[in-house]
Amino acid sequence: MSWYLTVLPLLLQGALNAIILMLVSLLFSTLIGAGLAFVDLWGPRWCRAPIRIFSWIGRSLPPLLILFAVFYLTTAAGWRLSPMTAAIIAFTFFGTAYKYEIIRSGLISVPKGQFEAGAALGIPFSSLLFRVVIRQAIPLMAPSYISHTTVLLKETSLASAIAVLDVMGAVNGLIYSAGNTMALMLMAAVFYLVVNGIMIVIETRLRRT
């Protein structure tokens, strides 16, 4: 019993941090990624090259490298970011690159005829986008969007490298201080299974709309 009292506060703190990191960076990367996808597809042509270059960098570099870059480079520049803020920025950076690609491919899967019908009926493009195009794109992009989001949750464990206490960071510390490795690993596993399980349920919902 006392063993649980020792480990639980730290594990729950780790779980909370992991969830905050995932949800905040998920929110930002979805919004920015969607914005980039719209601009890429329907915005000025000169925007395309910089967006593609950003996507190439964001998807090519290891998340850990981006994490270090954000944390240490800002510190070197005299800009003191908390580890959590640095982690959110790094996760948003590479998360956005993936979400942009996923949303873009969802949008271009909507048949051209839907756009032509809208144009022929004199429907303003913004209305068509929100009432027709995005709604048809959501079920198309749900599987890859959620797959990437589950990866994002697992990658929160990297944040312990810049001293953000996440679930695996907490487990790692407790193995040495409190012992009972198997129980600790099991609890971490349950956390990931439950949160990503919810993601997978959301996916099946989205696919059906």
């Binding site: 048949p111 005829g113 839907q114 032509e116 019908a117 144009a119 022929a120 009926l121 004199g122 303003p124 493009f125 009432r131 027709v132 709604r135 048809q136």
Partner: peptide, 25 residues
């Protein structure tokens, strides 16, 4: 541009080979 064409397009009905109904409605 799209915007300039809207008033005229609203006065012309078009029917397509592939129907092009809005599939989510």
């Amino acid at each position: 541009g799209e915007r300039a064409l809207r008033p005229a397009r609203r006065k012309m009905g078009m029917v397509f080979q592939q129907f092009n109904l809005f599939k989510n409605m």
